[in-house]
Amino acid sequence: MSCMLMALLCGSCAKQPGNLDLTMYDYRDTRNLVQTLYTAKALLETKGLAGLGDVHVDSGENTYLYVYDMNDVCLTHAGMPELEGKDEHDFVDATGKPVALLVQRALNNPQNPHGWVHYIWWEPGRFYPVPKSSCNIKATLPDGRTVYVGGGMNHPHEEKEFIRIVVDSAADAIEQSGAAALDLLKDPRSEYSYRTVRVFAFRPNGEILISPIAGNVNFTIDLPACTDAVGHRPFKRALQALENETTTWQMFTEQLRGERQLVKKILYLRKTTLDGKPLFVGAITDLPLTP
């Protein structure tokens, strides 16, 4: 009994990387993963690949780490050792997402400080696909090579931060490349679509450039008039908020089959410009459920 208590206490007192702001994440699982990766980064930078040691695998949560060089050649992979030494640059997931390319873009995206990438993977040893979100950060080995270390969560929680990243990145892309960015934003294989999340864009006059619900726009949706399960108009309220702000979060409810209580969702909307005219870019995700 006393050994168990000591183990629990030691586990809870484990040293975490300092000065790491994780307040943007609601879930402990997400924070734990990012902390683990920063611990791994510190070990890699001081001791090299051999230094990963115990943080390499946490079999209890089926979380494992991998390290790739910047050309996407696998250096070590705790979940699938058979990948070590292989070039994964052209790997695409079951939905056609170019995972390695998305990781490279995430690593160089200032809006995505922890390199989040969402795709379909599988649990090693199993035979069915699972949704996965992985966090990737760069590290410099003692020999001077730059690599990236990553790890992911199967069946991940939907964090608000994930849609903040894709919406802000989409707005940045529109501001930099104009209408040319829209094709990439519409592409379901891009980082701007994952699971049920999809970045959309519309003009103040209601013109929809990227639909929130469909791949093309053959019909009109009056977004400000749309209501949630209790009659609340989240888009109307969001547009009112954006008269004075650049970004806004608006919560709303949805009735799910099999749930007695309404579940809560959230809309993140950002105001930007395209061709000198105002444009709203947004996405929707789930909010955490109370226990």
């Binding site: 629990l8 206490l9 809870s12 402990r28 459920l289 109370t290």
Partner: peptide, 15 residues
């Protein structure tokens, strides 16, 4: 010490 459904439980909280 659980805040959200499905989230991780810390051993320190149990203690």
């Amino acid at each position: 010490g659980l805040s959200y459904r499905g989230d991780a439980i810390a051993s320190g909280d149990i203690l």
